[in-house]
Design a protein around this nucleic acid. Structure first.
Length: 375
DNA sequence: AATTCTACCAACCGCGGATTC
DNA sequence: TGAATCCGCGGTTGGTAGAAT
């Protein structure tokens, strides 16, 4: 692999940029565009390497940059995205217009990590700190985002097969007694898609319909009110925009006689369960077989969901992480114990859901389960 | 007032994928 | 086909300002 020849040239300036240098670079790129970065410094009359010019432009001179402090909403979004994407700063930055990856990275390292620790949350795993120590034996299927909130929190939860554990041949997902058995053959997908499947539990009515034979849409729970609706996958995201729109007003409703409990089993062994204000992992799998690490999802598709749409502003900014109760270690939100916040379209008594992120009022409840490529 | 500590942030460095020759 | 180059990314470093001692 070649190296930047400019990196080794002598007599090139390094360090902080002077206003004169900024002006030269800004003028040049404004007039001519950057083109090939390696030729920019020469053409702009700068004693810098192209790499340095590019960095200066991207992180400082670009006209579309948003200056100033991060808002609370931006910070919340970064935390949420980091829980899903990890240190993929460029992908995180792509969801925050006007912010650079470098800026976000600096904010994370200097500020957000500390804030999370103060709230009792491990910034690396996004788990409560008290659980991290006890997490020696990981479950076969884990919540990718480690958001151990209630099942009805509207966070995107990505459940992934632990690479170090044996892959299951079957998986079962049940929502309060409505099981969905999924064999690996039915969820096997093209190799580039890593074989994940996803489902939405939009409400928990008895005649919930499960649609399986949808090209590229995997397995979806559809709301009773639209039970005959068959979704097509127009953008390979697994969910159509039409679908998202049509259910957006009813996703927070559930009959009082249905408890929002989701459990996931593989090969007949329940290993993940989440209910109203609780979460438990029942797996005790000590098999030493290994699986290669896989890409759990196509992130570009994942990021197409409304979860990250910039125009979905929460009505009231609040922390996406609720306080951790020291005695339990679970993330809880006592404000949602018995009453339902969403007043529109409320036609019957509602089972309370836990709201634990700022997007709760706007988002579908979406879960996805990721399986290895080699299913 | 001087020194040390801390937080913040701009910039550098090295790696690796993609592209070009 | 393989080397050279471009480009972008994430980790790290170093400078600076303000707070604390």
């Amino acid at each position: 692999m070649g190296r930047h020849s400019c990196c080794y040239k002598q007599k090139l300036r390094k360090g902080l940029w002077s206003p004169e240098e900024d002006e030269k670079l800004l003028n040049y790129i404004t007039k001519h565009g950057h083109g090939c970065w390696s030729s920019v410094p020469k053409l702009a009359g700068l004693q810098r390497c192209g790499k340095s010019c590019r960095l200066r432009w991207i992180n400082y001179l670009r006209p579309d940059l948003k200056r100033g402090a991060f808002s609370q909403q931006e910070e919340n979004l970064i935390i949420e995205l980091h829980a899903v994407l990890g240190n993929r700063w460029s992908q995180i930055a792509a969801q925050l217009p006007g912010r650079t990856d470098n800026e976000i990275k600096n904010l994370w390292n200097s500020c957000l990590k500390k804030k999370l620790r103060q709230k009792g949350i491990d910034p690396n795993t996004h788990k409560p700190l008290c659980e991290v120590e006890n997490d020696k034996e990981k479950p076969l299927i884990t919540n990718k985002t480690n958001q151990k909130a209630s099942v009805s929190s509207n966070e995107v939860m990505n459940l992934v097969i632990e690479p170090s554990k044996p892959k299951p041949t079957t998986a079962s997902i049940s929502i309060e007694g409505y099981p969905l058995e999924v064999s690996t053959s039915s969820i096997n997908r093209s190799s580039d898609m890593s074989g994940y499947f996803s489902f939405q539990h939009l409400n928990y009515e008895p005649n919930m319909v499960i649609s399986e034979n949808i090209p590229n849409a995997s397995i979806c729970f559809t709301p009773t009110s639209n039970s005959s609706q068959i979704m097509s996958d127009t953008n390979n995201s697994g969910i159509t925009s039409t679908m998202l729109h049509s259910v957006s007003t009813s996703i927070f409703q559930t009959p009082t006689n249905v408890k929002p409990t989701v459990s996931i089993s593989s090969d007949g062994v329940q290993n993940w369960e989440a209910s109203n204000n609780n979460f438990s992992s029942n797996i005790n799998n000590t098999n030493n077989s290994t699986l290669p690490l896989q890409e759990e999802m196509k992130w570009c598709e994942y990021l197409n969901t409304p979860f990250l749409m910039q125009n979905q502003q929460p009505s009231q900014p609040q922390s996406i992480y609720n306080e951790v109760k020291p005695e339990t270690g679970f993330i809880t939100d006592e404000s949602c114990g018995t009453s339902w916040h969403h007043q529109q379209n409320q036609q019957q008594p509602q089972q309370a859901f836990q709201l634990s992120d700022i997007y709760s009022k706007d988002l579908l409840q979406r879960f996805s389960v990721a399986f290895g490529q080699t299913l």
